[in-house]
């Protein structure tokens, strides 16, 4: 069974059909790219999966259970973590606390034990900090854990969002334009990080405009145009698909 399966998902904003009868699947352990021209509805798809929007019609199954209409924090608890297209870090809070925010849903201390700092709460807190430092080390930001997140460079802020999402122990990681605003070197590092994430057993679904990155790491591509699926399959096949070239690549096919 697929880890994530969308079937006939439709999302409407007023008179605009943002996603139209969209169906695709994400297999466990794979890296899947969701691509399409600007305004094709890619981020809307992500927002439907993560619970920020509720689709009007259709079903979204995560590991066999329906997650349609669940609130975002419930979706995270079930094992889907995300990053945002426009970076949404807690800029004034330290880097470490941003990652701890991602760990929050795996912690259990209640109001009273938080006020009293019970031994169990302290242990949990220490374990969470250790775990979050590991995630920071994973993306290479461990030494900067005390700095304010807003002070990091753009590329590092993207990496911090990834670390924050990973701290929630996701089974599916959703990345919305992870390479946006990164230079070539940073993008190369990101490719390594995404591969390392998959090697940890986390499935990755990403939106990306950087075609080189997409071609390098994705095993499967889903192509959207005007909210409709126009192609799905291996990168090589999709790349040769006339509909895709027509709709998406147009004149600028030399990027490929």
């Amino acid at each position: 069974m697929s880890l994530l399966a969308l079937s006939d998902v439709t999302k409407v904003f007023g008179g605009l059909i943002a996603i139209n009868d969209l169906s695709f699947t994400v297999e466990a352990g794979s890296i899947v790219g969701l691509i399409g021209p600007n305004g094709a509805g890619k981020t809307t798809v992500f927002n439907c999966i993560t619970g920020n929007y509720t689709p009007e019609r259709g079903q979204i199954l995560f590991d066999g259970t329906s997650i349609r209409g669940l609130r975002p924090h419930r979706v995270v608890e079930l094992g889907i973590a995300r990053t945002f297209q426009s970076i949404r870090l807690f800029g004034k809070l330290p880097v470490l606390e941003n990652v701890l925010a991602g760990r929050h849903c795996r912690m259990r201390a209640g109001l009273l034990s938080c006020m009293l700092h019970t031994p169990a709460m302290r242990r949990e807190e220490e374990a969470a900090v250790a775990r979050c430092m590991e995630e920071l080390d994973f993306v290479g930001l461990a030494d900067r854990c005390h700095e304010a997140a807003g002070g990091l460079s753009y590329g590092n802020q993207r990496l911090l969002e990834v670390a924050r999402a990973l701290a929630a122990d996701p089974r599916l990681l959703i990345l919305d334009e992870p390479a946006g605003g990164m230079n070539d070197q940073e993008t190369a590092a990101l490719v390594e990080i995404i591969r390392a994430i998959r090697a940890r057993g986390v499935t990755v679904l990403l939106i990306e405009h950087d075609m080189r990155l997409v071609m390098q790491i994705c095993e499967k591509l889903v192509v959207l145009e005007h909210g409709t699926l126009i192609a799905e399959g291996e990168p090589e096949t999709v790349r040769a698909n006339p509909a895709v070239i027509e709709a998406y690549l147009g004149a600028d096919d030399e990027k490929w």
Partner: peptide, 29 residues
């Protein structure tokens, strides 16, 4: 007691909500 609360996941969650409630919800709070 309130100092303890501030220095816990509860206090951090409140600070995250103050900073950006959409991001906080998206992180699982």
């Amino acid at each position: 007691l309130f100092y303890g609360l501030w220095r816990s996941r509860f206090g951090r969650a409140l600070n995250c909500i103050k900073a950006d409630d959409v991001a906080a919800e998206g992180c699982g709070i």
